[in-house]
Each structure stands twice: as C-alpha cells, then as structure tokens.
Design a protein around this nucleic acid. Structure first.
Lengths: 170, 170
DNA sequence: CTTGGAATGTCAACAACGCTGACTTATTCT
DNA sequence: AGAATAAGTCAGCGTTGTTGACATTCCAAG
C-alpha cells in the first residue's frame, strides 16, 4: 500500500495520496445520490424506477435505436431491459417499429406522452446540474467532464462519444 | 424549455444549454459505471454486493461509528442496513462493541479480515481514480470535486464534510 | 428452398437491496 | 414511572439485476 507523505496543502502534480483519492470516491458517492434524487421522486409518483428513466433517456437521445444497441449502452441483460421496455410500451410511452432494412430489428421511439415524461425527468435533473455548474464555474465544469470521461471504461466511452455530436433537436 | 443560442465554442459563463447539461448527465451515468465496476468484481467473488462495500467503507472511515450514524450517511432504512451488517458480522469482517457512555449504542469496527477486504476494494477503486486524475490533471481534479460537491444535497454535504478532516491513519 | 445463425421476445426462477409496518428489548433521559 | 432513543427482528413487497431455456422471425448462404 503506497502510504506517502501528506503535505499540508495536499496538491501535487504527480503524487496523489490515498486520502485525496478516497475523498474523490466519497464525492462520487454522495454526488450521485443528489444526481438521481430529483428524477427518482418523479418516477416514484408514476410507479417507475431508475431503469425506466435510463431507457427513456437514451431512446430520446437516439430515436430509432434498436433493442440490441440499447442493451449495449445500458449494460444490462436483454431480460432486464425487456421488462422495463414492456411496461413503457404497454403504457404508451414508447413505440416499436419494425426496421426498414432489417425487419428483425425493432426501432424504438418515444410517444408524445413518453417525450413529456422525458422532459419532466431531464428538467429536474438539469436544474440540479445547472445549479452545480453555475456554483462551480465554467473551468470547474471542464475539469469535471475531463475526469468523468477519464473514469469511463473504453467501451462506455465509445457510446458516450457516439452521443456527443447530436444536437438537441429531439 | 429554455432553448438558447448555441455558440460554436459552446462555453459561456452564465448560459448553459440543455445540451451541455445533458452531456454532463450522461458523463455522470457512464463514469459511475466505471467507478463501481472494479470493486463490484471483487465483491461478486466473495458473494457481497455494493451495499456491503458502502458499509465497509464508512466503518473504515469512521471507526466506532454507531448504527444510527451509518444509517444517516448511507441514507437507507435500518432493515436494509441490518441485513448487510448482519452478514458482515457473522462472516467476521465487522465487530460490534457496546458504547462506553451510552450502552444502547453499538460501535462498529472492522476486523483484520474486514480491513483487508476494505483495502482490496478501495485499492481497486483508487487505481481507476488515480488513472483518471493523472490523465485529467490537477486543475481538472479541482473542478471535478467542486462540481460534485455542488451537486450534493445539503444533508449529504454535511456528512461528506464531516469526513473530510480525517487523516488516512485507519 | 432449406438451413444456420442472428435478433428479438418470453417464461421461470432467483438474488441483492431498497421499502413499509409492527413489535421487542435494553437503556437513558425527564 | 414513563417517555424517548438505539438497536434488532419478522413479515411482506417492489425494482432491477442475474441465468437458463426456448419460440419466433427474418436474413443470408448453400
């Protein structure tokens, strides 16, 4: 276990103490709780969970995406996703269309109602993000994004980057 | 829905587009997956879950903490925590001691075995954090922490700050 | 046209880990 | 003595993850 000298200021370019890193972990833990809290409240009212939010988010973000693609992005099994997707389809928030070129594929889209819920959820989440961004300032935000991106698995980074270019025209 | 002008550079002090905020959300989502992945693997081998990791982490971080305090930090119910704590005690990773001043309290400590698992888990998690920190650089790290701290609920921020001052002497 | 394989969907069973509600025990405070 | 607090427990439930088995549909190669 690397147990190095802990300077009073605690900041150095190349040397990172376990303590600094541990605080980073705790910051991730507590911040993620805040990050999910507001959407979770809305979801609970409607009888949905966080898995529904994730599905709705990425269908909104990549309309027409297939089930397989969604599986890869979300990193869950087909059965887990199917359960969530089924309720969303049955409740009229998501539609499936048979693929044009490959008719085995099901292209997923949000209905008007689904888009409305997506908006409510992302509004709630963005309000908190906006507040945090404003409080921390643009330089901090740039650093925030850099560290998060460096923390992703390569595979996740791939999907993250694939979503980067899209404009907000949903 | 505020839908403002998106400048090519995309950075402005006070105006944040929905798109910028959405990317921040996605960065949080994908990064958190990476953040938990390595410890999750170790835990799965031993038949534990993320809840065990959290309990072990905070008992290590605040040795002698009480059940009630742990409940507040973790933000779960007594029953949920008890289930996890019971397996850790039965498996000999955590000990309970009756409180000195208030004998109703149970003070929680890691055993040698518990501390060993804590080390394995946090080593795995810190390796990834360290890599991300090095890649992003110290300024980015400072920004990362600022944004995360601004994203926490006030109550969570309180507990986070309470843990800040401790040295790494576990 | 038939067949192999890919994409999708479904059923059953299970585990982890949240939750609520009710209740007990031990201890401390008023 | 009685109220309040800390902890533990039982019973039951919901979401969301897992595996395994299996059916269906469809594309593409032989």
């Amino acid at each position: 276990m690397a147990q190095g000298p802990i300077s009073p200021s605690g900041q150095s370019l190349l040397f990172l103490t376990d303590e600094q890193l541990r605080k980073g972990s705790e910051a991730m833990f507590f911040a993620y709780r805040g990050f999910t809290r507001d959407p979770d409240r809305i979801l609970a009212e409607k009888g949905y969970g966080r898995a529904h939010h994730r599905a709705i988010h990425f269908i909104h973000r990549a309309p027409g995406t297939t089930v397989n693609n969604l599986l890869a992005i979300l990193g869950v099994t087909k059965q887990s996703l199917n359960r969530v997707l089924r309720t969303l389809i049955d409740d009229g928030l998501v539609t499936q269309r048979v693929g044009a070129t490959d008719r085995r594929e099901r292209q997923l889209h949000l209905t008007g109602e689904g888009a409305a819920l997506e908006r409510a959820l992302s509004d709630a989440q963005r309000d908190r993000m906006r507040q945090a961004y404003r409080k921390a300032g643009p330089d901090a935000v740039a650093g925030f994004r850099q560290v998060l991106e460096a923390m992703m698995d390569d595979e996740m980074k791939h999907y993250y980057d694939a979503l980067r270019d899209r404009s907000d025209a949903g």
